[in-house]
Structures are given as C-alpha cells and as structure tokens.
C-alpha cells in the first residue's frame, strides 16, 4: 500500500462508546474506499470489548449495535455500512437516542 491510496480520518467517541472503547478519539489510516463496514471491523479487531456493546456481527456484516449511530462531519447521521469515508473526515460515534 502506497501513501497515495490510503486515507486518514478521525473517529471521536462519545458517551457509552467512549466508556467502552476507553478513549476519546482515534486517528486511523485505511485504504481509499473505506466504508463504515470496514471501520466497524477495525473496531471489533482493535477493541474486542466493543463487540456486542458497540458493534455486532450479523451474518457477514458488522454493524453498530442498537443505541449507537455515526455522525459524519457533524452533519449526516448514518449507520449505513456502505457509507464511504473521505480523507480527513471526522466520524462521531454517539448515542442514537438524543432525548433528555
């Protein structure tokens, strides 16, 4: 993998995700074309404690557990595994329940 075909981006963790992952943010370098599915896979690999609490395996997919959602660059709320990630994107992993 050359530097040209990788992207760097950041995931910020909030609430329960922050408690389970144990950090506030993570800078990742991954291949171009990375999607949320790939990121979910990385989370299960790097943070085994996140499995079933933040992410879950369903069939061939790894999806966010109920109660969580991504917010891409503070604007788009999504849990679509096919959502592509662009260089320098900031993904917020937050609770999907906004009520209070």
């Amino acid at each position: 993998m050359t530097k040209k075909n990788v992207i760097e981006f950041t995931i910020e963790f909030y609430g329960v995700a922050q408690m389970v992952i144990g950090m506030k943010s993570l800078r990742l370098t991954m291949p171009e074309g990375t999607t949320l599915l790939d990121i979910n896979r990385v989370l299960t690999q790097q943070f085994p404690q996140a499995t079933d609490k933040i992410v879950q395996k369903t069939g061939g997919n790894i999806v966010l557990q109920q109660g969580h959602i991504y917010c891409l660059n503070g604007s788009i709320f999504t849990n679509d595994p096919d959502q592509p990630i662009a260089p320098n994107d900031v993904l917020l992993l937050i609770s999907s329940s906004a009520g209070g």
Partner: peptide, 24 residues
Amino acid sequence: RSNATAKYRLIGTVDNLATFNRLR
C-alpha cells in the same frame, strides 16, 4: 436492560452535553 437503553443506564441523559456541544 439491553443496548437499547445503555446510554440512560450507564451515563444518563447528561450524556447529551458533550455530544450536543460537539454538534454545535
């Protein structure tokens, strides 16, 4: 008692503050 309510059980509604702050 499942993940559906984890936010409320583990942190409570005060969870909103940092998220809302980040989302402006």
